[in-house]
């Protein structure tokens, strides 16, 4: 037991490359969250619109996103769309896959948040002469985003963790991709992935902490 030579120096020498990968990981997570939140707001509007086909689209999206593995969704974007002759780069496939997943989960979070906002507020806003869109935009939306701030933070952490799934579409510029490529060259599996794990840990902790600080500043009453 333990006749294994740890070679931390060798693995640590590739730290700059891995940190660059970490930047790509953060970039994908942030972009996917931005797209996810936008789409989720749109889907929430679909649900509120009262139109049957529109809310059917929203429900289908949410149920598929929540009831199949994220890995499957990314795979579907890359190879499934490939079946239609649409070939996306690994980067785009990963981004779209994660954004799809985010949008589904966030729509469900928004639904929960909407329940906490009294129906009477919409009616009050409408009585004041606001159009339905104005009422949503000025009265409902800010509260909805505030209530679902914590779930959104969690989703952001999930987005970071999900970037590692890019492995399945041969993504090689994000943190996981860079690490596994270095691994294929040097075979220092344990050392390299331990470093990657530490980087992931630091990123997720930084996100939760900064979100908490941000919430404390933003949501003072």
């Amino acid at each position: 037991m333990f006749n294994y030579n740890f070679r931390w120096n060798q693995a640590l020498s590739s730290l700059p490359q891995m940190l660059e990968g970490a930047l790509v990981t953060i970039e994908i997570a942030v972009l996917s969250m931005a797209i996810g939140i936008t789409v989720a707001i749109l889907l929430t509007l679909f649900r509120l619109s009262g139109s049957r086909p529109l809310s059917a689209i929203a429900t289908t999206w949410v149920e598929i996103a929540r009831n199949t593995p994220a890995l499957f969704q990314i795979y579907m974007v890359h190879f499934g769309l490939g079946g239609f002759g649409i070939h996306l780069s690994p980067y785009l496939s990963l981004l779209i896959g994660i954004a799809f997943n985010n949008a589904g989960y966030l729509t469900e979070n928004f639904r929960g948040a909407l329940k906490a906002i009294p129906e009477t507020q919409t009616r009050a806003a409408r009585s004041l002469g606001m159009s339905p869109i104005q009422a949503f935009q000025n009265v409902i939306l800010p509260q909805m985003l505030r209530i679902s701030f914590l779930p959104m933070t969690n989703q952001m952490v999930w987005a970071i963790l999900m970037t590692s799934l890019g492995a399945v579409v041969a993504m090689n510029t994000d943190l996981y991709g860079v690490t596994s490529e270095l691994n294929a060259r040097t075979f220092r599996t344990f050392e390299l992935f331990a470093i990657a794990a530490v980087i992931f840990y630091v990123i997720t902790k930084a996100i939760t902490l900064s979100a908490r600080l941000l919430a404390a500043r933003l949501f003072r009453y």
Partner: peptide, 24 residues
């Protein structure tokens, strides 16, 4: 908390590497 802050994929690779190559 570590288990919830690190991608499962990396946990699996790490555990596998630790058990099979480090511990042998």
């Amino acid at each position: 908390d570590v288990f919830r802050s690190i991608p499962l994929l990396i946990q699996l690779v790490l555990a596998n590497a630790f058990i099979t190559t480090v511990l042998g």
